[in-house]
């Protein structure tokens, strides 16, 4: 990574991953489990933003909504419709969990796009926790709701009989890969985008390339805004799909 830059001696230094370093917020080096860090700060900002949008924004309860309130209602209707469409009527009672995930991810992603910001969702630890929470929650829910017939999810009864064991093996593997891909998709997208922007920003140190670099950063930034939303959407919709598998395992 740093090889060629240090060879140049032009002071060109790429540290695309430094933005992801977790530092204690109030000095010191030790990161204990309770230490307030920059991750804590930006998660707290995301919580505050959710609070501002969904609670303060709707505090007037006006029948004809203002700007903030209509955004809040849009988000509510968006996720509610998604849950209802995918999971069906009996999935609606899990709507608050899914809404929580969506709002947290979308705000963490968007706040992370601010310059100098830290993106909590770019860390595997964060996304893996959310993905495994969904995974274990959905699996336990599936067994509680359907008992042993939840295993029918892996037994594709529409396939010819000789193929079924093989398909069952594939289904089981894909089922256990779900949380991995679920978490790495989000973290990888966030990390990749921010790292690429940082790399382009590193090129700006050379005066000749600087305008190109700025244009490239602008373009990547636009793409990142899109990706931030789409990844939050995808994380949410996959949660809905997994939840649907738990509620209605017989497809």
């Amino acid at each position: 990574m740093a090889t060629e830059t240090q060879g140049e001696g032009g002071g060109l230094e790429f540290h695309p991953m430094d933005q992801f370093i977790i530092k204690p917020l109030f000095g010191g080096d030790a990161v204990n489990w309770y230490t307030p860090t920059n991750a804590t700060l930006w998660m707290a900002l995301a919580v505050l933003a959710v609070f501002a949008l969904l609670v303060l924004g709707t505090s007037k309860r006006s029948v004809v909504p203002g700007r903030v309130q209509s955004v809040a209602e849009l988000a509510y209707g968006f996720i509610y419709k998604m849950v209802e469409d995918i999971c069906g009527k009996d999935g609606v009672k899990y709507f608050p969990y899914i809404m929580t995930l969506f709002m947290f991810i979308v705000f963490a992603n968007f706040l992370g796009l601010l310059p100098m910001a830290f993106t909590p969702t770019s860390h595997i630890a964060v996304t893996a926790l959310m993905a495994f929470a969904v995974f274990f929650g959905v699996t336990i829910l599936g067994f509680v709701k359907n008992g042993a017939s939840f295993l029918g999810l892996f037994w594709v009864s529409s396939a010819p009989l000789p193929l079924r064991p093989i398909l069952a093996l594939i289904e089981v593997i894909s089922y256990f890969v779900r949380p991995v891909s679920h978490s790495i998709r989000l973290a990888g997208n966030m990390m990749a985008g921010h790292a690429v922007i940082k790399v382009f920003a590193g090129f700006a140190a050379i005066a000749a390339i600087a305008p190109l670099s700025v244009i490239a950063i602008t373009a990547m930034y636009g793409l990142e805004v899109l990706v931030s939303f789409i990844q939050a959407y995808v994380f949410t919709i996959l949660t809905c799909v997994y939840l649907k598998d738990a509620l209605h395992p017989h497809h």
């Binding site: 469409d85 998709r185 997208n189 995808v234 996959l238």
Partner: peptide, 20 residues
Amino acid sequence: TATLFIGIAFAEALGIFSFL
């Protein structure tokens, strides 16, 4: 459109794996 995004997500996940 939901199916579209799920499909894109699955296709993209494998690219993200290689990036990882």
